[in-house]
């Protein structure tokens, strides 16, 4: 591909630098870590005698939210740094953070709904935590739609940086709402559950042993690895776009 790029007018290259060794290593560790956490959560952790097998989804449900937290946090960081330095690389990180965070949020939301069906006897209820999580997903889905609708690159980057920073409020609300609004049936695993919580279980040592590696993986390795790949792809996509514009102008 590098050879192809060299033959193009203007000597433009869309191939970025070769994949860093750290990224390759991170990818391998992430894939192996994901497999290991599945073995821990689905195989080695005991069955919850009250909730049954469905409780095991908790080892993905809760960590996926924290993965989204990291990704959306990087969107905030990317947005702030873009506004301060006007460098496109920060905008790429912000965009990648939204895509990855939205996927993780959907995992969180849908696995929660599937857990709720046998435990709460409903797929969905307008509980404060569930409602705020749904609003969070919609807010970030709107980010991607709005971004696609702004033609001017400079305005798009600046506007979406501000949007990405403000949208993080929905993440914080989702995170803290069950500690603020007592009228929730959503359980808390760490700390006392709200009085009306349905389907609680204790963070026993068995649960913690399966949960911690999964939480660590989803909080750090998974979002960072995928975002890194996405940022590299965005660099090449932007370069290709410039190449197309150049070809059209000639």
């Amino acid at each position: 591909m590098a050879d192809k790029a060299k033959s193009l007018p203007g000597e433009l290259r869309i191939e970025g630098p070769p994949q860093p060794r750290a990224l390759r290593l991170l990818t391998v560790v992430t894939v192996l870590g994901f497999a290991a956490t599945l073995v821990l959560g689905l195989g080695l952790a005991g069955v919850d005698i009250q909730q049954g097998e469905i409780q095991r989804i908790f080892y993905i449900h809760m960590p996926s939210f924290f993965g989204a937290f990291t990704a959306f946090g990087l969107t905030v960081a990317g947005g702030l740094l873009y506004l301060a330095r006007k460098s496109e690389k920060w905008d790429r990180i912000a965009l990648a953070g939204v895509e990855v965070g939205l996927a993780f949020s959907l995992i969180n939301l849908l696995t929660g709904a599937i857990w709720a069906r046998p435990i709460w006897n409903t797929w969905w209820t307008w509980d404060p935590r569930l409602t705020s999580a749904a609003i969070m997903c919609l807010t970030y889905a709107a980010y991607l739609m709005l971004r696609a609708g702004i033609e001017d690159a400079g305005r798009r980057r600046a506007f979406m940086s501000v949007y990405g920073i403000l949208a993080f409020v929905t993440v914080l609300i989702t995170l803290f709402i069950i500690r603020i609004v007592p009228e929730t049936i959503h359980p808390m695993i760490v700390g006392a559950s709200p009085q009306k919580a349905q389907g609680s279980f204790e963070a026993t040592s068995g649960v913690v042993i399966a949960l911690i590696p999964s939480l660590l993986l989803w909080l750090t390795l998974m979002p960072i690895t995928i975002i890194w790949h996405r940022v590299r792809l965005e660099e090449r996509m932007e370069a290709l776009h410039r190449l197309k514009m150049q070809a059209l102008s000639e």
Binding site: I49, G52, L110, I114
Partner: peptide
Amino acid sequence: FITPDNRHYLALALAVVFVI
């Protein structure tokens, strides 16, 4: 109490995770 058999819901949830 009887531990509920809800393995099919776990399978569904895992399928959703892998699809996304």
